[in-house]
């Protein structure tokens, strides 16, 4: 990190200039569409919204006022509740399973890990027919439970993968010395290993939360309408209708999109290290 100031002193070569220029391409790729989204969401009135010129005003916050008048705050609440529950549930039981698979004597360990891998390849759409029938029987359609229970099917394998990588990286001697000091297996896990694995737990929590927050297929099947009950943000954004039917209201949709994306981008910027660690857990092995 201290090299930043060191290299500044040197004259920058042509190659470095070219390189920085290419990095700008990466920045534009990632950010330019989002800039389009923000500017469009701030345009007022049909004339401005239907003009391809991004700087064609007038600008204002009218679209945001309209979105919040459409119960969008309730959609945000639902998404937050469902994503939080999915995260809590899958992280709490997934961390234990990952520790057992990484460290404890488990019979059929390979078979279990293969099962986890197979489950992570599972297409969520295959859950739709059976769970739709089951949820209808149990009255779980249009409920938070109906969604976060289904989300565990893909978030639990994710948590187990990330966490078993993290546990495997913690030296075994730590448990052994805790046991020499008289700790039981459970105490060695709870007092010694788990505190060291907190960064991994944070990674797993963020990834699970983001995946659940963004989920659309199951949410639109199990809770397609009614923001006051359980409809989540992606479903709302996909189904916003304007004053005129069949005309998608570009102003409201872009404003709602910015509203849900800003917190996620802040999360990504703040917790960048943890997210990248989680995403790449497993990718660097082999």
């Amino acid at each position: 990190m201290s090299t930043v100031n060191g290299t500044r002193v040197r004259r920058r070569s042509g190659g470095e200039w070219l390189h920085d220029g290419l990095l700008v391409v990466v920045f534009l790729w990632c950010l330019a569409p989002f800039v389009w989204l923000i500017l469009t969401s701030l345009k007022q009135g049909d004339a401005a919204l239907n003009d391809p010129d991004l700087l064609q005003g007038p600008f204002g916050l009218g679209n945001y006022v309209a979105v919040l008048a459409q119960d969008f705050a309730l959609n945000m609440r639902n998404s937050f509740a469902v994503a939080s529950m999915a995260t809590l549930l899958s992280v709490s039981i997934g961390v234990m399973a990952a520790y057992a698979l990484a460290r404890l004597p488990v019979r059929r360990r390979i078979a279990l890990m293969t099962g986890v891998l197979a489950a992570s390849l599972f297409p969520p759409v295959a859950l739709v027919p059976p769970l739709y029938e089951a949820w209808r029987t149990f009255g779980l359609l249009n409920t938070y439970e109906g969604m976060y229970l289904a989300y565990v099917s893909f978030s639990l394998p994710l948590v187990i993968f990330i966490m078993s990588t993290f546990f495997a990286a913690i030296p075994r001697e730590l448990e052994e010395s805790a046991k020499i000091d008289g700790a039981s297996a459970l105490q060695a896990f709870a007092r010694v290993i788990l505190p060291l694995a907190i960064p991994g737990v944070v990674s797993a929590m963020i990834l699970t939360f983001v995946t659940a927050w963004n989920e659309y297929l199951l949410a639109s099947t199990f809770a397609p309408r009614n923001p006051e009950i359980a409809q989540t943000v992606p479903v709302a954004i996909a189904t916003f209708t304007g004053a005129v039917e069949y005309q998608r209201p570009i102003g409201t949709i872009t404003a709602a999109s910015v509203l849900v994306t800003i917190p996620m981008i802040i999360l990504a910027l703040l917790l960048q290290r943890r997210i990248v660690a989680g995403l790449t857990a497993g990718a660097v092995k082999g």
Binding site: V26, C30, F34, L37, V210, P234, T254, V260, A268
Partner: peptide
Amino acid sequence: TRAVILVPWVIPTVVAGQMW
């Protein structure tokens, strides 16, 4: 750069779809 590159990943797919 690593933070910026997370932006498209973190944007909900539904939002990306509407945007494009």
